[in-house]
């Protein structure tokens, strides 16, 4: 990016929208992005952002997120598997150490992993270049050792960046970023080197937004996903992401309506259900 410019120069300002179809003639590529995270109970302070709103231990904040790794990951994953949706995992890579059982389950389901930082309680703001390189190298090595996969994408930990983030992940050979929300299509990103693209991560239909920004019920959120899908399916070449957290969508009052939304999308016929990497590859092949 261009530092200290009003336009950071991440991409061409005028949208280069094309109408095209995905493999099988499908109009919309749909990917599901479960965030498999580890939040620390007593993380060190960061000068720009508090990890928890309450003094440590933030029992409700920590316990709520821990629900993913004890209960709701499997509930969410089973529903996805039942309707043919693989996950493209936004992974706090330290989960590979803390709860390898969760990571192994996702890997056994054939899910793809990209990095969401080391912990979701360690923020990238103000990192020096060598520090940011360290978390990228840590991510690549940790996921490779735990899963045999080489990460291809990045969603910054707790969405915290530096001006160098995109250049660095491109330099390390990563293919996609989930941090840019300017389009419903895959788009090229300007970087010093490499060939980075942005894939839509649809933050507005992230379950966290649904339940804690817009205060929806589980049924309202499921209806929101269906409306998002119905519109994007009319616009060939678009991408719909469903970004999830098991401790939210996997609660017993939400998972039933969510399953109905997945069933709707899977049964519609216009969706190409894929992983993030497959979507990026198909987009590049069509360039």
């Amino acid at each position: 990016m261009i530092e200290n410019a009003s336009d950071p120069g991440l991409y061409d300002p005028a949208p280069a929208r094309r109408r095209f179809t995905w493999p099988g003639g499908k109009t919309v590529a749909v990917w599901v992005a479960p965030n498999l995270e580890y939040y620390e109970i007593d993380p060190p302070p960061h000068p720009r952002r508090k990890a928890w709103t309450r003094p440590h231990p933030d029992v409700v904040g920590y316990g709520h997120r821990d629900h993913s790794n004890r209960v709701s990951h499997w509930r969410m994953a089973d529903v996805m598997t039942r309707h043919g949706f693989p996950g493209s995992v936004s992974l706090s890579v330290a989960l590979c150490q803390h709860h390898p059982e969760v990571v192994a389950d996702a890997n056994a389901r054939g899910w793809e992993f990209f990095s969401h930082g080391i912990y979701n309680t360690r923020y990238a703001y103000d990192m020096a270049e060598e520090q940011e390189r360290a978390i990228i190298e840590d991510s690549i090595a940790t996921v490779r050792e735990a899963t045999g996969q080489t990460i291809r994408g990045w969603l910054a930990p707790a969405l915290t960046h530096t001006p160098r983030t995109l250049d660095l992940i491109a330099e390390y050979g990563l293919d996609y970023t989930c941090d840019l929300y300017h389009d419903d299509q895959v788009q090229p990103v300007h970087t010093r080197s490499g060939r980075l693209v942005s894939i839509p991560y649809s933050l507005e239909v992230n379950d966290h937004y649904g339940f804690f920004v817009y205060n929806m019920s589980g049924r309202d959120y499921a209806e929101t996903l269906i409306r998002q899908f119905e519109r994007l399916a009319q616009e060939p070449g678009s991408v719909m992401c469903i970004p999830l957290h098991a401790y939210l969508i996997g609660q017993p009052h939400r998972i039933g309506p969510f399953e109905q939304a997945l069933k709707h999308i899977a049964g519609d016929g216009r969706a190409w259900i894929a992983t993030a990497g497959e979507i990026v590859d198909a987009w590049k092949a069509g360039q």
Partner: peptide
């Protein structure tokens, strides 16, 4: 530059922190 300790993870282990 963050304090180098910010990139140390003393409780990064199997099980909880």
């Amino acid at each position: 530059m963050l304090d180098p300790a910010y990139l140390h993870y003393p409780h990064r282990r199997h099980g909880y922190d």
